[in-house]
Simulated assay, not measured.
Amino acid sequence: MARAVPPAEPLPEELPRVLLWRWRRNPLRRRADLAQAWIATGLFLAVLAGIPTAMFLAGDTAYHHYDRTARHQTATRHTLPAVLVRDAPRHPEPGSYEAEKARYPVTVRFTDPHGRSRTARAYVRPSLPAGSIVRVWVDAGGEITDAPLTAEQVRNHSMGWALVAALTVPLIGATAYGYANHRLERHNLAQWDKAWARTAPHWTISP
């Protein structure tokens, strides 16, 4: 009768020793291994500290930029009445939520702030008949443009840049670690080549 195979030893207790082997003194540990451990620790701490700092700096800079842009747009853009030259296209699903949000480009006629009659393309609600009056935003030069940024849009743009900064910091840290690891591996290979050049003659059998 075959003997039962004893169960394998549990591994979880050994995992910390395996993961932290570069920190433990042992005959196989090289200076490059300890350097790699210090580099990994330093970069990890730098990333932890850098994420909130980068988020604050990026978000604050973006907020001031978009806030100035919104103020400038509010001061230089105005709404004017415009008349549809032709009917706006019909939405394929009238009365739906998509129809409420949909806007179609239609030629409109309006008088710019300088008193000149102009025609341009503006986005309007579907199914508006020709002759309907809509409000359009125009810039200082009389060109149709977008509405000024709202406070909510300024916040959203700022939060977006803060999120980009938060994602960029770990990427930079990972790139720096990969570069350092590559350099250390090349150093190790060079050291192995030198060691083998000294050891190889003792292993060579003369004919």
Rank of each mutant, 00 (worst) to 15 (best):
N26W: 14
L45T: 07
P27Y: 11
L34S: 09
F44N: 02
T111E: 13
W23R: 04
R109E: 15
F56W: 12
G42K: 05
A120Y: 00
L80A: 09
L80E: 05
T107K: 15
A122Q: 06
W21E: 11
Y104I: 06
E98R: 11
P113R: 13
V83D: 14
G95P: 01
F44Y: 01
T76R: 11
D33S: 02
T41I: 11
T79M: 13
L43S: 02
E13D: 09
P129K: 13
T53K: 07
H78F: 15
R71W: 00
H114S: 12
R90I: 00
T119K: 12
V134P: 01
A46D: 02
D33H: 10
A120C: 03
L45Q: 06
A40H: 00
Y104N: 06
L128G: 08
S117C: 01
R118V: 01
T69Y: 03
R109I: 00
R135E: 15
L80H: 08
A35K: 01
A46K: 02
V108E: 02
Y97S: 14
D112P: 00
L19C: 07
L43T: 00
T119G: 01
I133V: 15
Q73K: 04
D67T: 04
I39S: 06
Y63I: 03
F110G: 02
H91Y: 05
L48N: 03
A120S: 11
W21D: 13
R121W: 05
L43P: 00
G42L: 06
L11S: 04
H64W: 07
P92I: 11
R103Q: 13
L80W: 09
H72S: 13
R31Q: 06
Y66V: 02
D60H: 12
R31P: 05
G95Q: 02
P92E: 13
P89C: 06
D87P: 05
K101W: 07
L34P: 00
R71V: 07
R30S: 14
G115V: 09
P27M: 13
R30I: 00
V106S: 09
A46V: 02
A130V: 12
E13S: 10
A122W: 05
R109K: 12
D67R: 11
T69G: 02
G42S: 04
R68E: 14
A130C: 09
R116I: 07
R103K: 15
R121P: 00
L45P: 10
T119Q: 15
R24M: 03
T107F: 08
P129Q: 10
H65Y: 12
R86D: 15
E93Y: 08
R121M: 09
Y66I: 04
P12L: 11
A40Y: 01
H91T: 04
S132V: 07
H114A: 12
D87W: 07
L57D: 01
A54G: 01
L11W: 10
R125K: 14
R31H: 04
L57A: 11
S117Y: 01
H114K: 13
P126R: 13
A82T: 12
L28P: 00
A88H: 08
W23H: 04
A120W: 05
R135H: 13
G131V: 10
P52H: 05
P12H: 10
Y104E: 12
V108F: 03
E14Q: 14
A130F: 10
A46L: 15
V47S: 10
P94Q: 02
A46P: 01
